[in-house]
Computed example of a mutant assay.
Amino acid sequence: MNSFREYDGVKLARNSGTAIAPDFRGKGLGKSMMEKNSELYEKQGVHRAYLEAISTNTAAIRLYQSVGYVIIDRLLIMSNEQSLEELNVQNAASTYTLVRGQAAEVASAAFYLPGEVWQTDASNIRDGECVFVYKEEKLAGYGLFKRVFDAAGSLTAITLFRCEVAPGHPDAKEVLKRAVLEIMQPGHACKRSAFNIRASHKELVEVLTELGFNAGMEQVLMVREYNVE
């Protein structure tokens, strides 16, 4: 199952899923499928291909490595079902201004880049929203998220997908915290999660951890480069 996208002249692909029925596992079918998949990518002129695998699925990871994929990061799926007020978190007034918008608007940020984590790109989040963090009218950061409501209009879940800071900003962690608190709506009782957060984004992971989020599952992010003439 594949998806394709082109950005700045570079054609990207993502393997959205590879599955083999239990009765047919251990017969080399996985490698055959992945090799056939690579042929498809080459015909499509793909420059770079991504996929994710659950970190405990060592057999799948070995399979992907055998056909040229390498691990470039870990992806954390974090959650917190408590009210943030119960964690003594206060969204104190600051010199930052926060503005909400639709998910697609984050593409207007000069430092927005289509993510290597396919599912957290703005274009892939249906009914998504964003929050922009400004300081002195200059964009300092943004957060990308989605809210879910029940039939009665009550908020039931909030999922954070991405939270980024302008390169070189002197107070990156504070910007991240402002964005996350705005997104997570302290005081509301609902399910809160952060999906496929890159472990290498240490400041964001620290902010989420300080707000009571815990990683319940982890994936590896893998990539394979193709030589396209």
Rank of each mutant, 00 (worst) to 15 (best):
Y134M: 03
L76P: 05
L139H: 10
S108K: 15
V99I: 15
D150C: 06
N88M: 11
V133G: 08
K135P: 11
L84W: 02
I71W: 00
A59G: 06
P114L: 07
A110M: 14
T56W: 15
N88L: 11
F149E: 07
E129M: 14
D150N: 14
A53D: 04
G101E: 01
Q90V: 15
I158A: 04
T95G: 14
L63I: 00
G115F: 11
V106P: 02
G141L: 04
V89E: 14
E136M: 08
T159I: 09
V133T: 14
Q102C: 03
S66M: 01
Y69T: 06
V106A: 01
N88P: 09
E129T: 12
L76H: 02
Q90P: 01
R126D: 03
R100W: 08
G128V: 01
W118Q: 00
A92H: 06
N57G: 05
K146A: 04
Q82V: 15
E86F: 05
E81D: 12
L98Q: 11
I158D: 05
Y112E: 02
K146H: 04
E137W: 09
F145T: 07
D73W: 00
Q102W: 13
G115K: 08
V70G: 12
A60S: 12
L160V: 06
T95E: 09
A103M: 00
G128A: 06
R48Q: 10
Q102L: 11
V89P: 01
T58D: 13
V131L: 03
I54N: 10
E85K: 04
K138T: 15
N91Y: 03
R147Q: 08
L98M: 13
E81R: 02
D127V: 09
L144P: 07
R147C: 08
R126L: 08
L84N: 04
E86H: 05
S66N: 05
V99E: 13
L51K: 09
A93W: 00
N80V: 07
R100N: 12
E129C: 13
R126V: 08
Y134P: 11
G128K: 02
Y142T: 05
I71H: 05
L84C: 08
Y69R: 04
L160F: 02
L75G: 14
W118T: 01
F111H: 09
K135A: 15
V133Q: 03
N57C: 03
F132A: 14
Q119D: 11
F161R: 05
T120S: 06
E136S: 11
N88G: 15
Y112N: 07
G143P: 00
E136R: 12
I72F: 08
F161W: 11
R74Y: 10
F111G: 14
T159E: 10
V99G: 01
L139N: 12
S83V: 07
S79D: 13
T58H: 10
D121N: 09
E81Y: 04
L87R: 06
A49C: 14
V70D: 12
D73M: 00
E116I: 05
S55D: 07
C130M: 14
Y69V: 00
A104M: 10
W118R: 00
W118A: 01
V70Y: 08
E116Y: 06
